[in-house]
Structure formats: C-alpha cells, structure tokens
C-alpha cells in the first residue's frame, strides 16, 4: 500500500456524479478541466470508473432514486477515498431542500470530507475543495498505514510484487 498511497497524495483522480444538480455545478466542475483552470497541472484527472477514483465529487442533493447509485459508486471506490460536496444543494439541500423528492445534502448518506458552498461555486473554489480533500486523503492514508499489518509494508525493491 505504501508506494501507491504516497503517489496518490499528489495526483487524486476524480469521479464526478451529478445527483439532482441543476447542471450549474456540473458545468463548473467540467470547466475546471478545461484550459483556463486546467486541473491536470495538479495531476487531477476526471475518470469514469469508480474503481480508478480517489475523490468523489458530488453535485446536487440526494433524492430517493439516485441514493442507491451514489452508494454504489462510493462503495466501489478503493480506500483511502474522500468525498467533496460541491454546491449549496450538495452541502445542505439548498433551494431544493423543501422539495418532496429530496433527502437533503450528501452528508445524509455519505461521510463528506469537504464542503464547497456556492450556487454555483466558482471553479477556483472547486479546485480548492479538491486540494483540501488531498490533505484529508493523506491523513486517511497515514491512519490506514498505522492500522495495517507491518509485514505487508513495502520495502525498496518490492514494488513489482504489489503492482499487480
């Protein structure tokens, strides 16, 4: 786990899921990837497969139908993982809070690490949120290292064994 976790700190791969967002936060999340903001300079890549992802970026509040999909994505992500709630709706339910089909913020169903407020948050704020999540991931990785068996730790020259 050692070397994988260490390299992950610097380049978190992001998976984005739109719960019931109005698209505003989604297009701002996508705008982060494009040349003006270009998160790839931090090693942040948007991936489509939850099994490749470290950070789950959720936009919009959770409703009764998509809660199962969101849990599925979260459960498929490998440890250590972080959840970033982007936008007012993902943080608290926002303007949709009183709607009959809305369960509220993402923290009702998942442990959220970073909240990015705003309607919609600016791309800078979203990038900052992901960078904060990187720090959280580092802590989580340390905790995992302390609790895991010392014998499975990597020694120099052992990389090949764990690469598969």
């Amino acid at each position: 786990m050692g070397i994988i976790n260490k390299s992950r700190i610097k380049s978190p791969w992001v998976i984005h899921y739109d719960c019931t967002s109005c698209n505003g936060c989604d297009i701002e999340t996508l705008a982060c990837l494009t040349p003006l903001y270009d998160v790839e300079r931090f090693g942040i890549i948007n991936v489509g497969n939850p099994k490749h992802a470290d950070v789950l970026v959720v936009t919009g509040s959770v409703n009764k139908r998509n809660v199962r999909v969101l849990m599925n994505i979260y459960n498929q992500m490998p440890e250590p993982k972080a959840v970033v709630a982007v936008g007012a709706c993902a943080c608290t339910g926002g303007i949709f809070k009183e709607c009959y089909n809305v369960l509220g913020g993402v923290d009702n169903v998942l442990p959220v690490d970073v909240y990015v407020p705003g309607c919609c948050p600016r791309p800078e704020a979203i990038i900052d949120g992901i960078v904060l999540a990187m720090a959280k991931m580092e802590e989580k990785a340390k905790d995992m290292k302390n609790t895991s068996d010392k014998a499975t730790e990597l020694k120099p020259g052992d990389e090949k064994k764990s690469a598969g």
């Binding site: 739109d18 019931t20 998509n66 999909v69 089909n101 809305v102």
Partner: peptide, 9 residues
C-alpha cells in the same frame, strides 16, 4: 434520477 419536484415547490 434528477427528479426533485420543483413544480410542487
């Protein structure tokens, strides 16, 4: 998946 119930709101 995105139904919120805005018409009711």
């Amino acid at each position: 998946y995105v139904h919120r119930g805005l018409e009711k709101l």
